[in-house]
């Protein structure tokens, strides 16, 4: 069901990989489930594969595709490493989510999956959206617009669902900005 209908023309290779991971993921709701570990697709194991840096360095790459071993002091000093090279990528967060599930922590895994989505949202926009979710900042429509943006522009479906849910709750509680 995660087969995306979005226009992917502009997406680069990273986004394509992200999609694969997303497609493989069990979409589900936000309600954590005690039985989630068994349904997970990736099956990384807390005992075998954690910590990833030591036990599965093959799986760890930065957002720009560098392996941990490629990030050296010499390269930083000579200016070859950019900040983008030391950012976590969504696949890694998905692996960590699988480890969290395997360790019996479905709530933590759910947060890591929202985080995987947010890796695609620029810093400044993340901060703006956070501020928009604070009480009395947005009308309901403004919140729904943010949800649509998250879903369409950043393929952030789980985060979009969270924002839509917030819009409903804020409306009932009278915590929206007056339209």
């Amino acid at each position: 069901m995660a087969q995306s209908q979005q226009d992917t023309a502009a997406q680069d290779a990273i986004a394509a990989m992200v999609k694969q991971v997303l497609a493989a993921m069990n979409q589900g709701g936000t309600q954590p489930s005690a039985s989630a570990p068994a349904q997970s697709s990736g099956h990384l194991d807390a005992k075998k594969d954690y910590p990833l840096a030591a036990k599965r360095p093959d799986l760890v790459q930065s957002a720009s595709g560098l392996q941990l071993n490629d990030i050296t002091l010499e390269k930083v000093v000579s200016g070859q490493i950019k900040f983008e090279d030391i950012k976590i990528r969504p696949e890694t967060l998905e692996y960590q989510a699988q480890i969290a599930e395997s360790a019996g922590r479905p709530h933590l895994a759910a947060n890591m999956r929202r985080a995987a989505e947010l890796t695609r949202v620029p810093d400044a926009r993340v901060l703006e959206i956070y501020n928009s979710l604070r009480p009395y900042r947005c009308t309901k429509q403004e919140m729904l617009d943010i949800a649509a943006e998250l879903e369409n522009q950043y393929q952030a479906k789980i985060c979009a669902a969270l924002v839509r849910e917030a819009a409903d709750v804020y409306e009932k509680a009278g915590r929206l900005k007056a339209a």
Partner: peptide, 26 residues
Amino acid sequence: TEQVFVDGDDTPWSKAFLASAYASRG
């Protein structure tokens, strides 16, 4: 309580989003 949460200028939803934002930057 809801009122104190709001006086703290947040809600569980904004704070959960913030939690994901932190994790998204590792």
